[in-house]
Amino acid sequence: MLRNLQIKQKFTVLLLFVLLVGISISGLALSFVLRQNAQLEVENTALILMETMSSIRNYTSTQINPELQEQLVTNFLPQSVPAYSAREVFENLRSKGEYKDFFYKEATLNPTNLRDKADTFEAKIVERFKDQGKTELSGFRSLPGGDIFYIARPLAVTEESCLVCHSTVDVAPKSMIQRYGTAHGFGWKLNEIIGAQIISVPADRVIQKANKSSVVIIGIVSIIFVTVIVLVNVFLNRQVILPLKRITRVAEEVSTGHMEVDFDQVSNDEIGNLARAFKRMKLSLEMAMKRLKNSGGTNRNTAE
């Protein structure tokens, strides 16, 4: 099939093939790199949010809770619980458009408020923190509503003030026991990992962000490459195709005896060399024809 194509068409087919192969390979590579970058960006945002929640927990535990100790005996205030404060602040933060897709949970093995109860998957994360000594875990999780990307850090009892409510039932505020009962949230120990801070975001956010960037970059690369193909064709047409057509036309006229035409040398490249070679061939042909003509005249005179 290529034999029946002109040089310009062959170059166009070759460049289009290179374009398709290049876009396919670069598309796969870009998809992987951009997905990793998008995941890293989400991780960084999640870690900033997690550090913020940890600061809120610490503030509540060290400054708010001690001021309310006397009042907590008769009237338990959820706002004095670090986990509650962090969760409420995060929900307020989610009202902002930038963070609406993020979710925060302090998944606890034995929480006072069952809202914070770790499910089976989250409990395994907590156990990994306890058994393997890891300080951070991240990955994807499949849920009925779709996959999510999560990042988790261990949640440990670092303040003795936490044990006032969570060590044993007899020392816990009676108002808290009246609110939550005595079945959950006790037996904690200082420096024990009792749960995990988990921030999650729909996996589609990571994938769509990467895909959007891939489409933009591949689009730009495609436009650049198509422009290169057009410019190469223009250059090929002006510097190769047209000069070859002129040489071919002159050669055809010379072959029919029109010796007044000449091969013009318009460049010093291979095409110019070809024109010079044809020009020398034409001169040689003219000289040969003159010798033949003179030889023919001499033979006639001798015969007479």
Rank of each mutant, 00 (worst) to 15 (best):
M1A: 15
Q9N: 13
K10Q: 10
K10W: 02
F11C: 13
L16P: 00
F17G: 15
L19E: 12
L20Q: 09
I23A: 14
S24Q: 05
A29E: 12
S31K: 14
Q36S: 13
Q39M: 11
A46Q: 15
L47H: 11
I48C: 09
M50V: 00
E51M: 13
E51A: 15
T52G: 14
T52L: 07
Q69S: 08
Q71E: 15
V73N: 09
T74H: 14
N75I: 03
F76G: 05
Q79T: 06
S80F: 02
S85Y: 00
E91V: 07
N92Y: 07
R94F: 02
R94H: 01
K96S: 10
G97A: 09
Y104W: 12
A107L: 04
T108F: 02
L109S: 03
N110I: 01
R115M: 12
D116H: 07
D119T: 01
D119E: 02
T120F: 08
A123G: 12
A123R: 07
I125K: 09
V126A: 06
V126C: 01
Q132C: 03
Q132L: 10
K134D: 14
S138Q: 12
F140N: 00
G145N: 08
G146W: 01
I151Y: 04
A152C: 08
E160P: 01
C162R: 06
T168S: 04
V169D: 00
D170K: 06
P173T: 03
R179A: 14
A183L: 14
W188L: 04
L190R: 06
N191Y: 08
E192W: 04
I193V: 10
G195W: 05
I198Q: 03
S200Y: 06
V201H: 07
D204G: 14
D204E: 08
D204R: 10
N211T: 06
S214G: 09
G219T: 03
I220W: 07
S222N: 09
V232R: 06
F235K: 03
R238H: 13
Q239S: 07
L242A: 10
L244V: 01
K245L: 05
I247C: 04
T248K: 15
E252T: 09
G257Q: 06
M259T: 11
D262N: 08
F263D: 05
V266E: 12
N268F: 04
I271A: 13
A275M: 01
A277C: 03
F278V: 08
K279M: 10
R280M: 13
R280A: 12
M281Y: 11
K282G: 04
L283M: 11
L285A: 11
M289R: 07
K293I: 07
N294L: 09
S295F: 05
S295G: 13
N299K: 13
N301H: 00
N301V: 12
N301F: 06
